[in-house]
């Protein structure tokens, strides 16, 4: 390969594993007790990434855009089940709400970035769509999990206030405005913080990859920015949609708080 990237074989990986062995040894002798988790983590990461690497070889050869989209849809579905699993008290009908929100936000941003921003047919191949889509979905998953959890917690703790607002003639949306705002902020703060410090302390992942494969660091920076902006857009859309739709679950159409769900 002429991109300057060093070829790595499994032997190279095994040598790197030496560091984890050191960690396991230290944990053992210090009595920290995380050896088991570390070993499980290592085994899982090796298996998952080996399978991913192997899968991507096939996926990148896919010519059909529809098959690619189907893979992304499936990823969105897995993400919505994961998000529901992370909720302490998921409301009934959470999966459709989560799936619609996660898919809408990540697909819109992915389409925007690849079609308008990259504006090159190559961006519509699996080699771009799958990793970018995966990043968007993963990011949105984190955002929507944070938002849902926080929304639920705020509704529960502000139950009395919400009912007073309803009693004064506020609609459900107005009555839950404060919990929604908290949930939205909680979900977006990590992203905003990431924007603030990006590049100050560490070089972000995509940029690392590009720079190590001998790409122009300035191009790499632009890539990174486009991806960051995609993640911001995806998250804002998904979280907003997710909150609006789940609001309809927590309240009856007659603007009554369904406190049995809290």
């Amino acid at each position: 390969m002429d991109d300057g990237l060093i070829n790595v074989e499994w032997l190279n990986v095994i040598i790197a594993l030496g560091l984890v062995a050191v960690a396991i040894g230290l944990s053992y002798f210090q009595g920290f007790g995380i050896e088991k988790d570390l070993i499980v983590g290592v085994i899982r990461s090796v298996l998952q990434l080996a399978i991913l690497g192997w899968l991507l070889v096939y996926v990148f050869n896919i010519q059909s855009i529809w098959l690619t989209v189907l893979i992304l849809v499936a990823m969105g579905l897995i993400a919505s089940f994961t998000a529901k699993g992370r909720m302490k008290r998921p409301y009934p009908g959470a999966i459709p709400v989560l799936w619609i929100s996660i898919t809408a936000g990540s697909f819109f941003s992915l389409a925007y970035i690849t079609i308008l921003s990259f504006s090159d047919p190559v961006a519509l191949t699996p080699r771009y769509l799958i990793p970018l889509g995966g990043m968007a979905i993963g990011n949105v998953l984190n955002g929507i999990t944070l938002a849902s959890e926080r929304f639920h917690r705020e509704l529960k703790s502000q139950k009395d206030m919400i009912e007073v607002l309803l009693s004064l003639g506020a609609d459900a949306y107005r009555a839950a405005a404060e919990p929604m705002r908290h949930a939205f902020t909680a979900a977006l703060i990590p992203t905003i913080n990431a924007l603030m410090v990006i590049g100050l302390i560490q070089i972000p992942g995509v940029m690392v990859g590009l720079v190590m494969s001998n790409q122009d660091p300035q191009v790499a920076a632009r890539y990174q920015l486009m991806i960051m902006f995609m993640l911001v857009g995806a998250k804002v859309i998904s979280v907003t949609l997710g909150l609006r739709l789940s609001l309809k679950k927590y309240f009856t159409p007659e603007h009554q708080l369904r406190s049995e769900l809290l």
Binding site: M161, L166, S167, L168, G169, E254, H255
Partner: peptide
């Protein structure tokens, strides 16, 4: 149920058991 619920509520003042 035949009155618009928000109007209905505005016709009544409600003081909860635990002050808010």
């Amino acid at each position: 149920c035949e009155y618009p619920v928000m109007d209905l509520r505005r016709r009544m003042g409600w003081v909860p058991q635990v002050p808010v």
